[in-house]
Design a protein around this nucleic acid. Structure first.
Lengths: 265, 265
DNA sequence: GGAGAGTGGG
DNA sequence: CCCACTCTCC
């Protein structure tokens, strides 16, 4: 039998360009909710008509060119939150966070910064936003027993999530010891847990494939997209599936959909 | 029975982008020669490998971004001429002219300027290049009994070739009385004749459809692409076919292929 | 409206 | 390498 709640996260790297793939994927997989990052479309140009025509509702928070997040579901997501409720200034007017309730589960959709380089202002921004995220997840986890914080965290959790030895990866942004400590801290403080690692300890499960590496090492990705689930939901995690097949489509995103299946009552 | 010589002219508005359409069209129509304009590719990036793979040879004269002409045939065109032989300076280092011999017929492939506006320096350039063209066609027509000068002339010959009344069209570049006189003059001086009008007097046969008019008036084009044929070839014109079907393809060029069929011995 | 180039971003 | 933007040209 099938899971009773299925939520997917997918950094689409331009929703307008990838819309046909998104619609096809929705039709084929029928998730309860799909969380999109890097929609790269301002709200006035969000492709709502095409989604409605396919029977999907959406809430979204976009801007021109960069960032942009959205939550799609068959029924309109409710109690929509744009940005952090606790420290709204932390995202610096960038459209990186949207939250809403779907089928009784609170969803937070995150597109966290990449950080560029450890000596970049963007790395300091990444640290600040992770600090704000810690507070936000603590608050929301306390407020909503059924809570999932999903999205592109732009950090790989441990050596199983990178295609090179940890000692080498630690020199790279997305795997520095500092970033790993931030990613641990948001979980420790909130009680949320990485759904995949509750049920699967395999190495080499990836969610992002650098376009620049494409030709050379098509199977060398990084795992940087996660579903973090609240304590009440942790025993209900049935499966976490990484949809590598979309990479075979023409013009794929550099991220793949990651699907969390829950057994709810 | 089929024509013994079939030459097509097609302004493709980027050969690299349109290559799949060009290859499909070549395969379906099997011309003796295909003359392309606005290839918009510098010679180093000309897609020769893909053409060779499909069994086509090519000679070409391109530049970065703008202009660019090429002649394709099953056998390598010979005695290639780049630019005008008589007044090479008239094209001002723009890649607008290539000539070659295919199956005993001399072909000249032309991409003449649009002219922008009557008070523009580009209009003066258009006049100068048409003056040089008059000399060039006289010379080549004298040299080669079997001679065809084809391409995008960026002038409509008469009221049958525009979708609006002549009085209104005369106010627009590509149909001003001055330009019509230039277009007549190149024919008068050289003895070359517009192949279509040797055999067909219908109005409303077009070769170019302004992208900006697309939605509004999908059948309102202009005829600005021609095959001018030498006296010896004029009695051998069997047909001139305008391939409107390519406009239904996704991402079409604003010009369509115009095919001249000759009955040679 | 569609094309290429250059730019900034990842 | 891929994406969006702005610019210029037709």
């Amino acid at each position: 039998m099938s899971a009773s709640f299925k939520v997917a996260t997918w950094n689409v790297n331009s929703l307008r360009l990838r819309l046909p793939q998104v619609l096809a994927w929705l039709q084929a997989n029928e998730p309860t909710a799909l969380l999109l990052q890097e929609t790269k479309v301002e709200d006035a140009l969000f492709p709502l008509a095409e989604l409605h025509a396919a029977g999907w509702q959406a809430v979204y928070h976009g801007q021109k060119s960069y960032n942009g997040v959205a939550i799609l579901a068959r029924t309109l997501p409710t109690d929509v939150q744009l940005g952090f409720t606790t420290k709204p200034e932390a995202t610096e007017n960038q459209s990186r966070v949207i939250g809403a309730t779907v089928a009784g589960v609170r969803l937070l959709n995150l597109y966290l910064p990449q950080g560029e380089a450890t000596d970049s202002p963007k790395f300091a921004f990444k640290e600040r936003i992770y600090q704000a995220l810690t507070t936000e997840l603590q608050t929301l986890a306390a407020q909503y027993p059924q809570f999932i914080a999903s999205g592109d965290y732009n950090i790989s959790a441990d050596e199983r999530d990178v295609p090179i030895p940890a000692k080498r990866a630690e020199k790279q942004v997305m795997f520095t010891p500092a970033e790993q400590s931030w990613f641990k801290q948001v979980q420790t403080a909130s009680g949320l847990r990485d759904a995949l690692r509750l049920i699967n300890q395999e190495a080499g499960i990836y969610s992002w494939y650098d376009y620049r590496m494409y030709g050379r090492a098509p199977h060398h990705g990084w795992r940087i997209d996660y579903h973090l689930v609240s304590p009440a939901l942790q025993p209900k995690v049935r499966n976490v599936v990484h949809h590598t097949a979309v990479r075979a489509l023409p013009q794929p995103s550099d991220h793949i959909p990651v699907v969390l299946e829950l057994d709810l009552a």
